[in-house]
């Protein structure tokens, strides 16, 4: 059987270390073959709880950094938030712990062919995949600007690193603990105009992605948004990670975030209808006259 050299691999990963990063944890894994195939925006799906675990679903994380070679072989790094029992378990792992790694999975950010101007927008720890992206964009001669937003200072990720990665960095917090008080949507229109941004890349909660997509559209820029959603398998087999996305033909379909995404064109996602199957979606039942759920 021939297997695509670019496809994902399944390997036993070994924890190199877990470090605190503000309210988050930064996990480094040795995982052969993943880094070579990495492109910014792709993710890994990890098992949690060990071999005897009663927790069967994968936890997925966008790849923060990937190094094909190093003292320990290829490594990948991800950022964990607390609150989910599986991520909490990962954050307590010590060096040498082993777990099953699938990756890189999903569609990466599309990169421009020309050296254009790009604004990267990140919310909380979801900004992680933007740093690898910034590097690739700079290698192509693109100008890179960054906006990082969070509820409060400890929930920002990568604010220092952003200063190396981007020409302009704007930080916003909802409580004003650092940077400008408010959300990223307040600063985007002005920044996009001032920098003449051609492409907006965004990674974060749905509200932030929606705001970034709208700001891009108002300014006449393309947008690429990486959605954050529960992905029980990460490989396209469970059909649980779907969201309504408009295709080239103008038809809305429920598509899988793990396989058709996680990166989508921002103007294609039906942000206001997330969590629903909008009427008119391909294969949706006609609206029920009684208002009750239709079969």
């Amino acid at each position: 059987m021939t297997r695509a050299a670019t496809g994902p691999v399944q390997v036993t990963g070994e924890v190199l270390g877990v470090k605190r990063a503000g309210a988050f944890h930064h996990l480094t894994l040795v995982a052969a073959g993943v880094a070579e195939r990495f492109r910014p925006g792709t993710f890994v799906a990890l098992t949690v709880g060990g071999d005897l675990s009663q927790r069967l679903l994968r936890r997925t994380f966008p790849i923060y950094r990937a190094r094909p070679t190093g003292a320990y072989g290829g490594t990948v790094e991800v950022v964990l938030a607390t609150g989910d029992d599986g991520s909490d378990w990962l954050s307590r792992l010590g060096g040498g712990a082993r777990l099953d790694v699938l990756g890189p999975l999903g569609r990466p950010f599309a990169l421009p062919k020309e050296p254009v101007t790009c604004t990267l927008v990140g919310g909380g720890h979801a900004s992680a995949p933007l740093f690898g992206l910034a590097e690739r964009l700079r290698e192509r001669g693109c100008a890179v600007h960054m906006v990082l937003g969070a509820a409060t200072e400890t929930r920002l990720f990568g604010a220092l690193e952003a200063r190396r990665a981007a020409k302009t960095v704007i930080v916003t917090t909802e409580d004003g603990s650092v940077g400008m008080r408010g959300s990223v949507s307040a600063v985007l229109p002005d920044l996009l105009a001032r920098t003449s941004t051609d492409v907006v890349y965004a990674s974060g909660p749905h509200g932030l992605l929606h705001a970034a997509a709208e700001a891009a559209e108002a300014h006449g820029a393309w947008s690429q948004t990486a959605v954050e959603t529960d992905m029980p398998c990460g490989t396209g087999v469970c059909q649980a990670c779907v969201l309504p996305v408009v295709g080239e033909d103008g038809v809305t379909r429920m598509v899988r975030a793990c396989t058709e995404g996680p990166v989508f064109r921002g103007d294609r996602v039906r942000w206001r209808d997330l969590g629903t199957v909008p009427s008119g979606t391909w294969g949706a039942p006609p609206p029920a006259p009684t208002g009750g759920p239709a079969r």
Binding site: R55, D230, P232, A240, V242, R253, G283
Partner: peptide, 26 residues
């Protein structure tokens, strides 16, 4: 006919299992 399936969330983790309702999307 094509089916869009049920609205999300479609799956939750339970002890040693999952609870799902995808609504035969296909």
């Amino acid at each position: 006919d094509p089916r869009a399936g049920w609205p999300p969330p479609r799956m939750v983790e339970t002890a040693s299992g999952v609870l799902s309702g995808t609504g035969l999307q296909g």
